[in-house]
Write a protein that binds this DNA or RNA. Structure first.
Lengths: 193, 193
DNA sequence: GTTGAAATTCAACTCAGTGTCTATTATAAT
DNA sequence: ATTATAATAGACACTGAGTTGAATTTCAAC
């Protein structure tokens, strides 16, 4: 829409740097990744980095934003057809998208990342799951969100780290169940194959 | 037991540095806190820092360990008397201890900290709440923990950040309720005054 | 294909923080 | 009061940051 014509040299440089970042973040925390290392990994000159980003956090932020934009586009596309009860459908769609971009999400949800991405993700989740608030008072609703969203993201992290052995439907079902009905009403063998 | 006789100069130096760390972590992420800034804040010579710690992370680790030891001592002391159903008692005790050490926990649970402390805390919580496992399969139990523990810690963070307006009993009750019975069975106005 | 514009490279520089070391001073323990 | 040791002060080489200017390469538009 805006700028179709980006010099392919720029495209290449930015792409190399983004890949280098994701690669280095498999091993190191973002705070320990130097501009030097980034450029050596990407095979570009250090001066070139500063033509595009102010520091590694800036690069990370742009990667995060890009992922979120693509995710939003994906979910909007998928969600036109059906508006199921709440979210087991939406949640599964989301997990499928994550699955298709494992490396990226693994990096952005790992301990080597900052919190910006998780925050944005929680905000997105809030929008997607915003209900006609049941009879709970506002403060309780706030605390419910603060409990459930990090919990769900934590489940997602574990699922990714351990190779996504469970199906997206199993994980979705589990998250919905535990949020709505708690531990005491979980069905047995929910995640067993 | 081991070394009662620590030179009081050392005590002072370490105390100054720990306070400086907590102070700086109110503003900056641990990764952005330099040895220089630490020493200037503490009012000690930079050489002295290296007599005690290898880097700011080392200092942080020792602060974390100290807090955990004190916490353990406190909980063991408090828990002799009664072994209530699960944990509403233990949880309240814990929150009371947190309340008595707000600044420390605020720093160690904030975004400016690393994950080590949260991990240790979750491990401790696991031990304290280990149940004769209900009828759930091992994998589901794992995922339940991975959902609930970060959720609970997240609630704790919010409670701290917003000035601990709710009582420790209210928060404990809320956490237990949402873990066991989920959102759908929360009593209204649970956190209202 | 040629050419003009723009992106990348290269080398150099200052700056700040690191980690180590040695000599000196201050102070706690007894 | 003496002795051991902790803290200080200053210097060192080293690493990465961020900037700059000139040279070079590459793209894109004609």
């Amino acid at each position: 829409m805006e700028n179709k014509k980006i010099d392919q040299r720029v495209r290449l440089t930015q792409s190399l740097l983004k890949n280098a970042l994701v690669k280095l973040m498999q091993e190191h925390h973002i705070s320990k990744i130097s501009v030097r290392a980034l450029c050596e990994t990407a095979g570009i000159n250090r001066s070139t980095f500063y033509l595009h980003y102010s520091d590694p956090y800036d690069l990370l932020a742009q990667v995060e934003q890009e992922v979120l934009e693509n995710l939003n586009r994906y979910l909007n596309h998928k969600s036109i057809s059906d508006t199921k009860p709440l979210s087991i459908q939406v949640l599964s769609n989301f997990l499928n998208y994550v699955k298709e971009n494992v490396d990226l999400f693994k990096a952005l949800l790992s301990e080597n990342c900052d919190f910006a991405f998780q925050k944005d993700l929680m905000e997105l989740a809030q929008v997607l799951s915003s209900q006609p608030n049941q009879s709970l008072d506002p403060k309780t609703i706030e605390y419910v969100k603060v409990f459930c969203l990090p919990g769900a993201i934590s489940v997602l992290q574990k699922w990714l780290q351990e190779g996504m052995k469970e199906s997206t439907e199993q994980i979705s079902e589990f998250i919905i169940q535990i949020i709505y009905f708690g531990v005491s009403n979980l069905s047995k063998d929910m995640l067993q194959n």
